[in-house]
Design a protein around this nucleic acid. Structure first.
Lengths: 185, 185
DNA sequence: TTTGGCATGTAATCCGTTACATGATTAG
DNA sequence: CTAATCATGTAACGGATTACATGCCAAA
């Protein structure tokens, strides 16, 4: 989708490390777990970026106590925190998106109508699944204690996803029920 | 955003050429005009891709009649139409998104609250502007004749954008009015 | 005559994923 | 013992933007 101007992987790292030391593997796991619906990060980005950040002095390795398997745990340095704060002050770059499904909708006259229905139907199912996961996450959050005082912010992010996915499911429903479409437009 | 697995620029080109011959410049202009809210394409992608498509025999140059400035106009070939149809049959690849604003929301505890308000406010203004443009486009479409019988599909794409942007503006409003947020959740 | 839009293209660079390569640890 | 998961990293590739380079044509 869209495309990024500046390197944001590093701020994901610095942001997560602001809550405590983590290894590359944990950063990746956390990102999948908490950010999956609005952010993705691959090892091929993560590990080289960790090396760069360390070279620049924005993060530092933490000695892992005792035995166990090899883990390279990092913490944020004061310079890293400063860099994160500076980034948080900067305006959000306007995002560009690339929705393959809309390209297919747009050109669907060239193909078969059933194919379009199938694509939209798959899109709806996929989005619905994601929506239910977010709903579950929100429900479990609201019952749980909030030791780090971050639930408010997590909820804001979740709500963005909920609203977005609801809109998309609604659109897919509209596309898949021509009667409703005629009535609407 | 996200990231794309296969080359979709070529199908944008083949799709647009399915409606008639165009030059690279016109493809770019049309993309900006009609697809801006869900697709972006730069010259650095477009021109090399046109050369590749021609080399593969999926598009062919059209002789431009008489004088005037230099324009390389292309048309789709039968092989190009076949390639487009084959792509239209393929399932949409699940999209991955990267919303910088959510990253900033998530880590906003490290920074100032006013900065977050500013970011969300800018996001709302930007999204609202795009929303109004889409509304205008929809209105002008509904009054106009439909010689190419493509208004239905255009409307579907527009509605996707309308619903999405409405959801985002709603979210931004929620973030910016804490009272409403308390009442809602 | 000079500015702005039309028009094409390349080079440098970066972003990002996938596949590969390797190996330790733990649960069954 | 063996499969799954933890864990780190690199190499190859392709996608995408930006900046640069060039020049024509029309209108003010």
């Amino acid at each position: 989708m869209a495309r990024t101007r500046s390197n944001k992987t590093r701020f994901l790292i610095l942001g997560l490390l602001s809550e405590g030391p983590l290894s590359g593997y944990e950063i990746r796991r956390l990102t999948q777990l908490r950010f999956r619906f609005f952010w993705s990060e691959s090892y091929g980005q993560l590990y080289p970026e960790l090396a760069r950040l360390e070279a620049e002095g924005l993060i530092a390795p933490v000695k892992t106590p005792g035995g166990g398997r090899q883990r390279n745990v990092y913490r944020s340095t004061p310079a890293g925190t400063r860099a994160l704060k500076a980034w948080l002050k900067q305006s959000v770059e306007p995002e560009t998106h690339r929705f393959e499904i809309l390209l297919k909708v747009y050109f669907s006259a060239v193909g078969d109508a059933e194919d379009l229905q199938r694509h939209v139907s798959e899109f709806r199912d996929r989005t619905r699944g994601a929506l239910q996961q977010l709903e579950g996450a929100k429900a479990s959050l609201q019952g749980a204690p909030d030791p780090h005082h971050n639930h408010d912010r997590v909820l804001l992010a979740l709500d963005f996803g909920l609203r977005t996915y609801q809109a998309w499911v609604g659109w897919a429903d509209q596309v898949l029920t021509p009667a409703a479409r005629k009535g609407r437009s």
